[in-house]
Amino acid sequence: MPSYYLGGILLMALSTYLIRMAPLTFFRRHLKNRRIRSFLDYIPFTVLGAMTFPGIFESTGSTLSAAAGCAVAFLLAYREKSLLTVTLAAVGAVYLAERLLL
């Protein structure tokens, strides 16, 4: 297992570095195409959305506790609390839900 992890880590590191390095090192043009820029601008949000749902409901001991954590995260994120506050509150909500339910 550790060698599978090590290979994966190095593969990720190399590909991430090449993506960061190539444009700055080799290109000097400005990207003007509206659709390509929009596509790249949307990518971080769609990646996060696709990773969060439905994965979040399988991330804890039960779907119900995950739903509780998800609801708390939504409420606080909507009120624009900091990353750390939202994260810790979601973890706290799951912990409480599992104590009460399981």
């Binding site: 969060t52 979040i56 991330s59 799951v94």
Partner: peptide, 15 residues
């Protein structure tokens, strides 16, 4: 087990 949701909470806070 509760910490399993941490990453997703952070994603929600980002988006």
């Amino acid at each position: 087990s509760a910490a399993g949701i941490a990453l997703y909470g952070m994603f929600i806070a980002l988006v």
